Computed example of a mutant assay.
Amino acid sequence: MADNPDIEALTPYARSLGIQLADWEDGVPIMCVEFVEAVEGRPEHFHGGATGGLLETAGYAALRAELARIERDAVLKPINITVQYLAAGKSQTCFAKGRITKLGRRSANLTVEAWQDDRSRPIATAVMNVLMAQPEG
């Protein structure tokens, strides 16, 4: 699948953390962030906010990819996001991938997982609810 410019157009916050597109898997982007000073919390560990930012970015990227695939235009607005921290993120690259659990007419529900060296052992997960508003104009 070709790279989608909408997926790569990250928010200023995501760019400040160094979040980027790592790969595509089954039409869904996998986002990543390398361990750098900007994401460090306690020494040699990811800050929880950086982990949450990666999860949220990966969730929106998955939703944008699906909306592009079905040629649907929408303005995405967060309803809520719940993050579960499962293990401390160590000083290595962190990856995240979102999955749409429900795509409705007005809202979408997603789950997102973040992992490091072992994908079967996520360091954090998130559940997101996103409002999909009609673009103005």
Rank of each mutant, 00 (worst) to 15 (best):
M31W: 08
W24I: 07
I79C: 02
A58M: 07
D73M: 06
A96L: 06
V112P: 02
A96D: 07
V75L: 13
A38S: 14
I19L: 02
A88D: 04
E37M: 03
D6L: 10
A22S: 12
L10K: 08
D6Q: 08
G53V: 06
I123T: 10
S120H: 10
E56F: 01
D73E: 13
R72T: 15
C94D: 03
T125E: 05
R99L: 09
S91Y: 01
V28N: 02
L110D: 00
A61L: 06
T51M: 15
E56N: 03
T111R: 14
S120P: 00
E34I: 00
P78W: 03
G27A: 07
V83G: 06
P135K: 10
V127S: 10
D23M: 01
L67H: 10
L86S: 08
N129A: 14
F35R: 10
I19Y: 05
T11Y: 03
P29F: 03
A38R: 13
N129Y: 03
H47T: 05
T51S: 13
R42Q: 12
G59M: 06
I100N: 10
A96M: 08
V36F: 01
W24Y: 15
Q92I: 12
Q134T: 14
L21H: 15
E66S: 09
T101V: 14
D118P: 00
P135T: 09
A65M: 07
Y60Q: 01
L103N: 04
I19C: 08
I30P: 04
T101W: 03
T93Y: 07
C94H: 01
G89A: 07
A114K: 11
V75R: 14
I19D: 02
L67T: 10
Y60W: 08
T125G: 12
A133M: 15
V127P: 03
T93P: 03
T101L: 03
R64P: 04
I81L: 09
R106C: 01
A58N: 07
T125F: 01
T125W: 00
D73G: 01
V28H: 05
R99H: 11
P43W: 10
G104A: 09
N109L: 13
L54S: 04
A88C: 00
D3M: 08
E34W: 02
R15K: 15
P12I: 05
G98F: 09
E66R: 15
P5G: 05
R105Y: 10
G98K: 04
M1D: 01
Y85K: 08
V36T: 15
M1Y: 04
Y13P: 00
G48S: 12
D6W: 01
V36E: 11
K102A: 13
E71F: 01
R72I: 08
T111L: 11
H47C: 02
V36W: 01
W24Q: 03
V130A: 06
A88V: 11
A2D: 12
N129H: 04
S107I: 08
K77C: 05
R42F: 14
K102M: 07
A61N: 09
D73R: 14
